[in-house]
């Protein structure tokens, strides 16, 4: 009995892995787009560096992070843009929900939630993989003060990779919540626009969260969006360390579990609605 269930689990994992692989291979086909995107990201990165240099020069004491940590933040942000960009949603899924073809997906022996999760994560990973290395390598070789530093020690590096994965998980879980939202609404376009622009600000992609003034900063750090890029990008340069880091990673984990749980629960309700209404 027990053995059978492990076999079943293995089998079902393989199923989601194949969704993952399909999407991944699809993603890496757009090479010219990736090359062009890379040029854009390079320019963006440099411009950001110059802006923050100018602000740093105008008042170094007011700068809330080490300058080199800021450089690491900027270059990692550019290299892994596709990891954390919440505006990059899968329009296929919205179409599926709007035109009712979602009913066909329900006929397959897969959990919609897991499938969406696998597809989304793969899409983001494939897009980031193509772009990240040239950007990272260049950033590591830039002249000071714009060079991206290496992590302090191997432990930090491991923590960085771990929280990156968790941050990707939080981002994907959030996006799926937005997909599911459109199950329950006639038109979700408006709320989607509002949500993505709010998140864009609160996740620290416009200005890093440490730059926000005090009461606001504390609140924003408690929100789930702080667990997207904010945590790993700051752990990398040890800007986030010690108990503060432990708390941030704990929160990240908490929000991840909560959002996945909520997503799965809502997904079940939505599925039942589709079945009852006949799509």
């Amino acid at each position: 009995m027990k053995k059978q269930s492990t076999i079943q689990r293995e089998f079902s994992l393989r199923k989601y892995f194949s969704f993952f692989r399909l999407r991944f291979n699809m993603g890496i086909q757009y090479r010219t787009a990736a090359a062009a995107g890379m040029v854009t990201q390079f320019v963006w990165g440099f411009m950001e560096c110059f802006v923050y240099k100018a602000f740093y020069d105008s008042n170094p004491a007011a700068f809330p992070m080490e300058f080199s940590s800021m450089m690491a933040y900027i270059w990692l942000q550019q290299a892994f843009l596709m990891f954390f960009a919440t505006w990059m949603m899968d329009n296929e899924i919205f179409d599926l929900i709007i035109n009712g073809n979602i009913a066909y997906e329900l006929c397959r022996p897969v959990s919609i939630y897991n499938m969406w999760f696998a597809k989304n994560a793969a899409n983001r990973l494939s897009k980031a993989v193509l772009r990240c290395f040239p950007i990272l390598i260049t950033a590591l070789l830039l002249p000071e003060p714009f060079r991206m530093p290496l992590p302090k020690d191997i432990g930090t590096a491991i923590l960085f990779v771990g929280t990156m994965a968790l941050g990707l998980g939080v981002t994907v879980a959030f996006c799926i919540l937005v997909y599911i939202l459109s199950f329950f609404m006639v038109s979700s376009q408006g709320i989607r626009i509002l949500l993505t622009s709010l998140v864009d600000f609160f996740c620290g992609s416009i200005v890093p969260i440490p730059f926000l003034p005090e009461p606001l900063r504390t609140v924003v750090e408690l929100l789930p969006f702080a667990g997207m890029q904010n945590v790993p990008l700051r752990i990398y340069s040890s800007d986030l360390a010690g108990t503060e880091m432990t708390r941030a990673v704990g929160l990240q984990l908490f929000w991840f579990v909560l959002m996945v749980g909520l997503g799965k629960w809502l997904c079940r309700i939505a599925e039942r609605r589709v079945v009852v209404q006949g799509g």
């Binding site: 200005v207 730059f211 926000l212």
Partner: peptide, 9 residues
């Protein structure tokens, strides 16, 4: 928010 912190650039 940047100007709230730095006041000029």
């Amino acid at each position: 928010f940047l100007f709230a912190r730095f006041s000029e650039v």
